[in-house]
Design a protein around this nucleic acid. Structure first.
Lengths: 351, 351
DNA sequence: CCTAACGTGGAATTCGCATTCCCAATCGGC
DNA sequence: GCCGATTGGGAATGCGAATTCCACGTTAGG
C-alpha cells in the first residue's frame, strides 16, 4: 500500500538515494547528465511522486499556505480566495482553506490546525471583533500567531491590523465618507439617511458606519436611524424590514439607506421590494465592497469598490515576501461607484 | 527556530517520548492518570502543537482532503466548497483547495500536488471534457487517480462519473427535460425556444442541452437556435447578444431562452436588457443550478435547483466512508423552480 | 512461595527525504 | 609524471512522531 519512494527510484536507476534526491528535488548540486537521465527515466517508469510530507519534515518547510475566511460561499470572501489561489498557484504553493462561520473560536481552531500542519504562511481574512469576549479571544489568537511567527511562520491579515502581522487594510472610514460625500453632493440629493450598521462589535462595520456618519455630520445631516444587525444578506434583510416597520412606510420617503456591505444592501433591497418599496424610486440604497454579484443586479448598486482579488493576491505576496519586515500595513482605498440604486431620477417616471 | 517537539514535552514531564505520544495523540494504550496529568501539563506549559507532517509520515495518513474546482469565485463552486468545508470540519479534516480555471492541464497539476501531499481523499468538482484532447488528458487523469487509489486514496467526483470513483451525479438530462416540460405546460406557453448550450465539449452542458431538446421534440417544438458558448457569465452574455443580433430583435418575440447554467442565464438577461429587451416581458429566460445569487436577482430566475451544499457534503462523506466500496454513483435530481423570469404575464402591463 | 499473566513505561526502529560529511576518481598545473 | 584541487557519488544522520518490541514490576493463581 505504500507508494513509490525515492529509494525505489534510486535502486532502479542504480544510484544512491541522495543522488536521486539531488536529481528530482532541486538541489544545489546537479549530478552528471548520464545520472540525471537514468534517474529521470526510473522515476518516470515508476511513476514517482515525491512525498511532500517527508520533504516538509526534512526541509522544515511545507509549501502550504493557510487561508482563513468567514464563509467561502460569500462572494466577498470567495473573490479574495480566488486572488489568493491565483498567486499561490504562481508560486507553486498549496492552499489550505478554513471556514470559521464568523466564530473566533473556530478561527482559533483553524489557526491551530494550520500551525500543526506547519503552513509557511497564514492569511486571515475578515474583521476583528471589538467586544470584551472578542478581545479575550483576540489575545488568544494573537498569542498563537506570535508563537507561530516565532517559529518562522508569516502572517498576513486582510482587514484590521493585527499586531505583528502584515496587513492589507481597506480604508473603510474614508471609503464610506467618500460615498456619503458623493451621495450628498448632487442637486436633488436625499437629506434623509439610514445606516444599516452591521454588528457593533465588528471593526469593519463600525469603521464604515463611522466614516459615513462623519461625512453626514459635516454636511449637517442627522441620520434618521442607525440600525445594527448581522453582517450578512439576511442581516441586511431583517434590518431593512425593521426600518420599514418603524419609519412610516406609508409614504415614499425618498431616503437613502447605506448598508455597510453589499450583501446586506442586496438583502435590504429585497426587503424593501417585499414591502412594496422600489429602489431607487422610493428608497435609495448603497453598499460597500463591489462584489462581482453586483454586475448583474437590478438595479445597479451604488457602492465602494474594493479590489478584492488583488487584495488576496497581495496578501500572499506579502506573506511570502523574503524580507523579514516584521510588520507592515498596506492601505487600499475604495473607489465610489455610483449606480442606478441611488439615482433618484431613475425610475421616477414609472407608476 | 524549531517548535516545541514531543520530546521536549516528554523531557519536561519526566517521561519518555512514546509515553508522551500515547498521552497526547490518541493511542490505544492510556498511561496511568498521574503520567497523563504530568504530560498534559508539560504540553500546556510549553504550548506544544503536534507536527502534523511528522504524524502523517509515521501514520501514513494526513488528515487532508483535496478539493479541485474550476473557479472558487463562481457561486456554483463556492457553494459546493462550503458544503465540503462544513463536512470536513465535522470530521476534523483540513481542506486543500485548488482552482483549475477550467484547464485540464491545471487539474492534473492539482491532483499531482494533492497526491504528493498524500491527501486521504480527493474531491473533483466540475464536468469532464468530451473532446479528443479532453479524452487524452482524461486518460492521464484517470491513470493518476488509479495510482492514487492504489495507494489507498479515495476519490469522489461531482459531475460525470469517472471510472473507479464515487460520483455525485446531478441528473442533468432529466432536470433539463423537466424544466422544458414545465415551461411548455402552461396555457400561454411560449412555442419558441433558444438554448444557450455552453461548450460542446463539456459533458454537463451537453447533457442539459440534450435533455431540454428531447422534451421540446416530444412536444413537437423545434428550437429557434442552439447557440454554443462559454460556460460562464460572459459566455451567456455573448451568446445572448448573438441571439439578439441574428433573430430579428425588432419585435418582442415572446420566446424563451434556456441557458444551461445560472450564471450564463444572468449574463443573458444582462445582454437582453442592454439590447432593450426586458425579461420576462419580451423574452423569457431560464437557467440551471439555483445558485444562491439568484435569491436577490430581479427578475427571479426560473431554474432547476441542485442541492449544492449538500452535494459537497455528500462528496466528502462518500470519499471518507470506511467501506471500501470501490465505486458508486449517487444520482441527485434537480427540482424545477418556476420564478418570474418565465412568467409571461409578469410585467406585461408596464410599458 | 513460586510462577505465569498482566499492566506500564522505555529503547529502538521506522516513515521518506534532505543534507552533511567523506571518500574516490578525475583534472589541471608545474 | 606527481600533487593538490575539484568533482561526483555514497554512507550516515536528522526531521518529529508512531509503533513494535522488551524489560520490569505487580498481582493473581496454584
Amino acid at each position: 500500500m505504500r507508494g513509490v519512494t525515492l529509494t525505489d527510484v534510486a535502486l532502479r536507476a542504480g544510484v544512491s538515494q541522495p543522488t536521486a534526491s539531488r536529481v528530482l528535488n532541486g538541489s544545489a548540486r546537479r549530478p552528471s547528465p548520464a545520472v540525471v537521465e537514468a534517474v529521470r527515466r526510473a522515476a518516470d517508469e515508476l511513476g514517482y511522486i515525491s512525498n511532500a510530507q517527508a520533504q516538509a519534515l526534512a526541509r522544515s518547510q511545507t509549501g502550504l499556505v493557510g487561508l482563513v475566511v468567514h464563509d467561502i460561499a460569500d462572494p466577498y470572501f470567495s473573490s479574495i480566495a480566488a486572488g489568493v489561489q491565483a498567486e499561490a498557484y504562481q508560486r507553486d504553493r498549496q492552499v489550505l482553506l478554513a471556514t470559521t462561520l464568523r466564530s473566533t473560536e473556530q478561527e482559533i481552531r483553524a489557526v491551530n490546525a494550520f500551525i500543526g500542519h506547519r503552513t509557511d504562511a497564514i492569511v486571515l481574512v475578515g474583521s476583528r471583533l471589538n467586544t470584551d469576549d472578542g478581545l479575550r479571544d483576540q489575545e488568544r489568537l494573537t498569542g498563537l500567531l506570535d508563537r507561530y511567527r516565532g517559529l518562522g511562520g508569516r502572517v498576513a491579515v486582510i482587514g484590521q491590523p493585527l499586531p505583528g502581522t502584515h496587513t492589507i487594510a481597506p480604508d473603510n472610514r474614508a471609503g464610506a465618507a467618500a460615498l456619503a460625500k458623493a451621495l450628498t453632493a448632487e442637486a436633488d440629493a436625499p437629506r434623509q439617511f439610514v445606516v444599516l450598521a452591521g454588528p457593533p462589535k465588528l471593526a469593519t462595520a463600525v469603521d464604515r458606519t463611522a466614516g459615513f456618519l462623519r461625512e453626514l455630520r459635516r454636511e449637517g445631516i442627522k441620520p434618521l436611524a442607525v440600525v445594527p444587525g448581522e453582517f450578512t444578506r439576511d442581516g441586511g434583510y431583517e434590518a431593512a424590514q425593521q426600518v420599514v416597520a418603524s419609519l412610516n412606510p406609508q409614504r415614499r420617503w425618498g431616503a437613502c439607506i447605506f448598508a455597510v456591505n453589499d450583501v446586506m444592501a442586496l438583502g435590504a433591497i429585497a426587503a424593501l421590494r417585499e414591502a412594496g418599496l422600489r429602489t431607487p424610486r422610493d428608497v435609495q440604497v448603497a453598499g460597500f465592497d463591489d462584489i462581482p454579484t453586483l454586475r448583474d443586479h437590478e438595479p445597479g448598486l451604488t457602492t465602494v469598490a474594493l479590489p478584492l482579488q488583488e487584495m488576496g493576491r497581495r496578501a500572499i505576496e506579502m506573506a511570502l515576501a523574503s524580507d523579514t519586515g516584521e510588520q507592515s500595513v498596506t492601505r487600499v482605498s475604495g473607489r465610489v461607484i455610483m449606480r442606478e440604486s441611488t439615482n433618484p431620477t431613475a425610475n421616477r417616471a414609472e407608476p
